[in-house]
């Protein structure tokens, strides 16, 4: 079971642009590789990542097999309001890995 991690400042001034770093351990099996018997290893990647602030989606990433294993993304949002930051990683196999952390805006 992959374990997602996120890092961002817990508190921010209103209007401040904050950096959000995310990471999840995942093979991102491309679907191009074969084992020694020539059998294609089935594709299994994190195909979508979403970040929402207070229930409103602020950033989305569609990922393809060209993204490295253990995909990490760094992006930026404006600290417009306090509320939970919800992160979702969607796996090819239908699993969803989620994480929620509060952001306090002063």
């Amino acid at each position: 079971m992959p374990t997602p991690k996120v890092k961002f400042p817990e508190t921010a001034a209103r209007g401040e642009i904050i950096e959000i770093k995310t990471l999840i351990d995942h093979d991102m099996e491309s679907g191009q590789r074969k084992d020694m018997n020539g059998v294609l290893l089935p594709r299994r990647i994190i195909n979508r990542f979403t970040c929402a602030l207070n229930g409103k989606v602020v950033f989305t990433a569609e990922l393809h097999p060209g993204i490295s294993a253990n995909p990490g993304l760094t992006f930026y949002i404006t600290a417009s309001e306090s509320g939970p930051l919800d992160f979702t990683w969607e796996d090819d196999d239908g699993s969803r890995y989620t994480l929620s952390r509060p952001l306090t805006v002063k």
Binding site: I17, V57, T60, H64, G72, L73, F75, T78
Partner: peptide, 15 residues
């Protein structure tokens, strides 16, 4: 990859 933004933060992504 395709990154979809909303009018927030800045248009920058690393990976």
């Amino acid at each position: 990859a395709s990154f979809h933004f909303t009018p927030t933060g800045k248009a920058e992504v690393s990976g």
